[in-house]
Design a protein around this nucleic acid. Structure first.
Lengths: 338, 338
DNA sequence: CTGAAAGCGCTTACAG
DNA sequence: CTGAAAGCGCTTACAG
């Protein structure tokens, strides 16, 4: 394994000159540069990342904290991971992916040992126990998901309130007066998944303003309960002309259930979802939906982390709620006049 | 940030003593131990991972090389990632997840810069271009997926030949004489995904031995082509009494397609898949299937890597094909006597 | 434009 | 049972 000292010897210069040639942080003669380049290529030299990290106090690694609850629909999570990882690479960072059940301990471990320069937390809940650890860490952190206390952390999330208004306005404009909303499962609310109630509460409130009654029910998290629940919910509310689904597992099961019931979309029922375009492609979901933008959220989080790593200037942290976008896929229609 | 020197000063001992207390590599007086422990906790000291890595030449990080082809069904990949990550943590290693489009460059980057102690390659193809890089790397590597040349690398994969025989024998024993096999999409074969033809060729051969004609067709990779293709394939072979599906995306779409056709399983058609139990749960797939064991494969790969990291003894590399297991879910039946 | 030297925070022979 | 010192492979003031 060639070191910078080997390169220096072969090139007939000092180690510092090799280092500066590598970083470009000071001018080097054309000739010296060439000799160094040749030595590097002859020796197959690569900078040792650990040694560089020790000297610069920069690891060029960002930690990604993922939590897989086994009552959760994992495929949706993958999109955040990929968005984050791609964005990190574009900025020259690698991703240390941590999936420990004990997220607090994992966060403590990778930050206090200086394995990472910053950290992105996925699936942040209302009173996320990882935040205390993050606040006392040396490294900056960005959250995906809105906690109650946003003091000192950068937060990124979809604007679920605006999303709810957008969906309700869309349906109200089409003449709907009663809609069913299938929210995330109860355990998501219990765990503090604020996106659940943020969307639901605003949907109900906006519905009241616009004369659209929103009937909210918790979705199930496991098949076959999911499908059975959609059936019984539709049975229970025959007067509802629209269905809003805010739950990945349920929306993935929806095509089959609606086919079973011979429900024609949008003639018999208008359907609106909240999911990403990638998700729509993977599962062939033909519903008009709010784009949940996992890729964009991951990218924003990484960008902000990198900014904070580079500029020691600790500007005020911010909460960024991404504006929703309604992707029309033709699954909503005007209510038939009786 | 407290260093080991701070701990030593506060405890009134030398740095080496603190280090040895940490590692337990030499006996320390009870009293000295206590003073060090107190100093560590008072200062909130944690070993700097980078410095330790530099001194020991061990990063305690394993690289995981994932390739997301956008014509691929991503959810299946996630299971390998989770199995690998969990197994690594159990052995004290973290996972550096790399998803670069250029896998060769990514592998070169993380190995030559010594960011990792070993590496796991996912989705290895018949003539995987990453293998040359891996062979010249300092770190050991384990593959998931069987390449043509297994020289010097540890390989883990499902025994697809045995899987094919098991499926065909199962169907033949039930009296089936003609079965359709939907293989992975053509581009998987083109790319060198050996699992495709390993299963297919052996299924056909075993079928010939047992009097079961296996009609192999390539699956599609994107909806709505997937569903349309299953329909047309079933239409084209009305005499087939069994369907074998070796393709995640197709099997995920199967319940809907069969419902559309009012096909009763297993009365009208026996169905066998090749997928993991986790996948079955997530997508509620009720078919008898060969367990593809992504978790077990990920674990085995990590275990082997760790063994090689620890015991410098470079014992011969091996190819490990996991024995298949047929999980009965009641989707196959005896052929009706005409 | 280039070099000699200190330092990043650890571990581990070498000595006692 | 414990310490002083060298070394892991870099970077970066400090000097010239």
């Amino acid at each position: 394994m060639a070191t910078i000292a080997d390169v220096a010897r072969v090139a007939g210069v000092s180690r510092s000159t090799v280092s500066y040639a590598l970083s470009g942080k000071r001018p080097i003669t054309r000739d010296t540069q060439d000799r160094i380049a040749r030595a590097i290529s002859d020796l197959g030299f690569t900078v040792n990342a650990g040694a560089r990290a020790l000297a610069t106090a920069q690891t060029m690694v960002i930690g990604l904290l993922v939590q897989f609850h086994d009552d959760e629909f994992a495929p949706a999570m993958l999109q955040y991971i990929l968005g984050t990882t791609a964005a990190a690479r574009e900025r020259g960072y690698d991703i240390l992916m941590v999936t420990d059940v004990d997220g607090v301990a994992a966060l403590e471990r990778i930050t206090s040992s200086n394995m990472v320069d910053g950290v992105v937390l996925l699936d942040v809940t209302h009173d996320d126990s990882r935040l205390a650890t993050l606040r006392s860490a040396r490294q900056p952190g960005a959250l995906i998901g809105l906690p109650a206390d946003t003091e000192g952390v950068d937060v990124f999330d979809l604007d679920f309130e605006a999303s709810a208004r957008m969906v309700v306005q869309h349906l109200a404009a089409l003449g709907h007066t009663e809609a069913i909303l299938i929210t995330p499962p109860r355990h998501v609310f219990d765990r503090g998944g604020a996106y659940g109630w943020r969307f639901r509460d605003e949907a109900i409130a906006e519905g009241e303003r616009l004369g659209l009654t929103v009937i909210a029910v918790h979705g199930e998290s496991q098949q076959p309960a999911i499908s059975a629940h959609v059936h019984s919910t539709l049975d229970a509310h025959p007067s509802s002309t629209a269905l809003i689904v805010h739950n990945d597992a349920t929306v993935a099961a929806l095509p089959e259930v609606l086919r079973d019931r011979s429900v024609r979309v949008p003639i018999d029922l208008s359907v609106v979802g909240i999911y990403s375009n990638d998700f729509a492609r993977t599962f062939h979901l033909p519903y008009t939906a709010i784009e949940s933008s996992p890729d964009a959220l991951g990218r924003c989080a990484v960008e902000t982390i990198v900014e904070r790593i580079l500029s020691a200037n600790s500007s005020a942290s911010a909460v960024t709620l991404i504006a929703p976008q309604l992707i029309e896929r033709g699954s909503t229609g005007r209510v038939a006049q009786p």
